[in-house]
């Protein structure tokens, strides 16, 4: 599904290397968690995958379903099936959430050569999916993320994910700013999308999200590389001991 090979990335504005050779393979239907201390390059990885400006790939490639996506525009990557749930969802005054969703869904269908959804079909689908995420009609009518609470913003990200039905979902610290109930709701939304084919990369600081979204593989990222890979028990180890011991061990090796 996703293959990141020896990815090196630096900032465009300053000569600062952020990723120093990331290797990661995510198979179909798998859930991978990336953990790591602040500044290790987790969010940069998600931005580079989604095609955000400001980063320069100096080496390596990212293959999604056999295609090197680094050559693609962000919208082409989205149409190819990549979805990033933002850590800080953006507020867009003047564009209703509903218009935003319909524009996105139809743009992707068009890019894939499919017919656009009729207004009725779209409404039916969005209402059903919004309901399961406890997103009410008012939130759909309001401008995108404007005046939404932290939890509402994250639920809105999951709603977009549910509507766009991507092949690969990247969740960038989706748990940040969520209380326990909101985290449960968001996790249920994510789990509902697990169908054995769709893959997930879950970026998080904390193990607690992984209690709800159970990963197959856990990676530890540090200083622009994945330094350790293991099963779910690796997340528990981090939760109990912090990163210090683990990183000391890595550095020794």
């Amino acid at each position: 599904m996703l293959e990141i090979k020896n990815l090196h990335v630096k900032l465009e504005e300053e000569d600062k290397q952020i990723l120093k050779g990331v290797n990661l393979t995510v198979g179909e239907g798998e859930v991978h968690a990336i953990m790591g201390p602040n500044g290790s390059g987790k969010s940069t990885t998600s931005y580079v995958l989604s095609g955000r400006d400001g980063y320069v790939v100096t080496e390596g490639e990212v293959i999604l379903d056999g295609e090197n996506i680094l050559e693609l525009e962000p919208e082409e990557r989205a149409a190819a099936g990549l979805f990033l749930a933002f850590q800080y969802p953006v507020e867009i005054p003047g564009v209703s959430n509903m218009t935003f969703l319909r524009t996105a869904v139809n743009a992707q269908r068009k890019a894939r050569g499919e017919e656009e959804l009729s207004a009725t079909d779209f409404l039916k689908t969005v209402r059903a999916k919004a309901k399961s995420l406890q997103i009410d009609a008012d939130m759909l009518k309001r401008p995108v993320n404007m005046g939404f609470s932290g939890g509402e913003k994250k639920r809105n990200e999951i709603l977009q994910m549910a509507m766009l039905e991507p092949k690969l979902c990247i969740l960038d610290e989706t748990d940040s700013g969520l209380d326990v109930d909101a985290m449960k709701l968001v996790s249920e939304g994510v789990n509902a999308l697990r169908d054995g084919k769709r893959s997930f990369v879950v970026i998080t600081h904390y193990q607690r999200l992984l209690d709800h979204i159970k990963p197959d593989v856990v990676h530890i990222m540090y200083d622009g590389r994945i330094v350790k890979t293991g099963g779910p028990e690796l997340a528990l180890e981090v939760e109990h001991n912090g990163y210090a011991d683990l990183l000391a061990e890595v550095e020794k090796a």
Binding site: P74, E75, L84, V90, Q108
Partner: peptide
Amino acid sequence: DEALFYLRSRGVPA
């Protein structure tokens, strides 16, 4: 720019 990227990341052409 932020809003533009957000829309593009959802598949809306620039």
